[in-house]
Computed example of a mutant assay.
Amino acid sequence: MLEPPPLCERFVLGVDVEKYSDRNVRRQLSIQRALDRLLSQAAEAAGLDRGLWECEPGGDGELAVLPDGVDLIAIVRRFVDQVELLLADHNADHSPEMRMRLRLAMHVDTVARGALGRAGQALITLSRLLGSGPVREALAGAADANLALIVSESVYRKAVLSELGGLRPGQFREVRVDLPAKRFDEMAYIYIPGHEVKPEKSSYIPASPPKPEERSRRPSAAGKSVLNIVSADTIHMPGSVFGFSEHGPNDDC
């Protein structure tokens, strides 16, 4: 009888390029190269080693399983801010046909190593969030935005509610991702750098400073992107053995 593979908790990340299939093959290849370079640069600037990520390319993006012990503030705040910064530069320097707008999704859950790759609820939930209507609509409704981030409730609880590194709950809008055909119904949270959502409206609007009488009720820096944060405050994932150690990947998970 075969022993079951280790089932471990890991942080997973998904990236998808908006309207990628609308481009011709030459432009798709150029966007792939630009995106791969941009993600590596953003990870390095955030203090992360993308070389340790287990990436599953998808043409218009990728799904990645991050190593054990990843700093949640580095990935949820600093990495996202660096992606936004690099996207802004890229889009300013390129024609509309070569500009990139990204959807990002983040989740924490279990995965296991299988004969044909990773298996587990983490990647299933990540894919549901990344392709969901709420994050697509949020990005489409913010014409001047470069990216939209959607995080699962577990990431929101573990990272955003800490309010470390400039993260604030008021920067995120709670949404319901309901996919009856997939038997998927979960709450998630959307953030667009430089934008905030008014509760009574469904679209994103540029963030503006709160009125004096609202300052006591609203989180500071709500809805604003905080770029190039350097903070000693970190939150690390529990030290489950998940295929990576400080020396790199192993075969356990």
Rank of each mutant, 00 (worst) to 15 (best):
M1A: 13
L2P: 13
L2R: 06
C8T: 06
C8Q: 03
E9Q: 13
V15T: 09
V15H: 08
D16S: 09
V17E: 06
S21R: 01
S21G: 08
S21K: 03
D22Q: 14
D22N: 12
V25N: 08
R27D: 14
I31T: 08
I31H: 05
I31W: 00
D36S: 10
R37V: 05
R37A: 13
Q41E: 14
A42T: 01
E44P: 04
E44C: 08
G47D: 04
R50T: 04
R50Q: 12
R50E: 10
C55P: 02
C55Q: 11
E56H: 08
P57E: 01
G59N: 08
G61W: 05
G69E: 05
I73W: 03
A74G: 09
D81I: 01
Q82S: 12
L85Y: 10
L86R: 14
P96N: 04
R99G: 08
L102I: 06
L102F: 11
R103N: 02
M106S: 09
H107P: 02
V108E: 07
V108T: 11
G120A: 05
Q121R: 11
T125R: 13
T125Q: 10
L126N: 00
S132A: 10
G133L: 09
V135Q: 03
E137H: 07
E137Q: 07
E137T: 05
E137P: 00
A140S: 04
G141W: 00
A142H: 03
A142G: 06
A143C: 02
A143T: 03
A143Y: 02
N146C: 11
I150T: 02
S154K: 06
G166I: 00
G166C: 12
L167Q: 05
R168K: 15
G170F: 06
F172L: 07
E174V: 04
V175A: 05
V177G: 03
D178M: 11
D178W: 10
A181P: 03
E186K: 07
Y189T: 02
Y191N: 04
I192R: 01
G194T: 03
H195L: 06
E196N: 09
V197D: 01
E200S: 07
K201R: 11
K201C: 07
Y204G: 07
Y204L: 01
P206I: 04
P209D: 13
R215Y: 10
S216C: 15
S216W: 15
S216N: 15
L227Q: 13
L227G: 11
N228D: 15
N228A: 15
I229D: 13
V230D: 13
I235V: 08
P238E: 09
S240N: 13
G243N: 10
F244Y: 14
S245T: 15
E246Q: 14
D252A: 08
C253Q: 01
C253H: 00
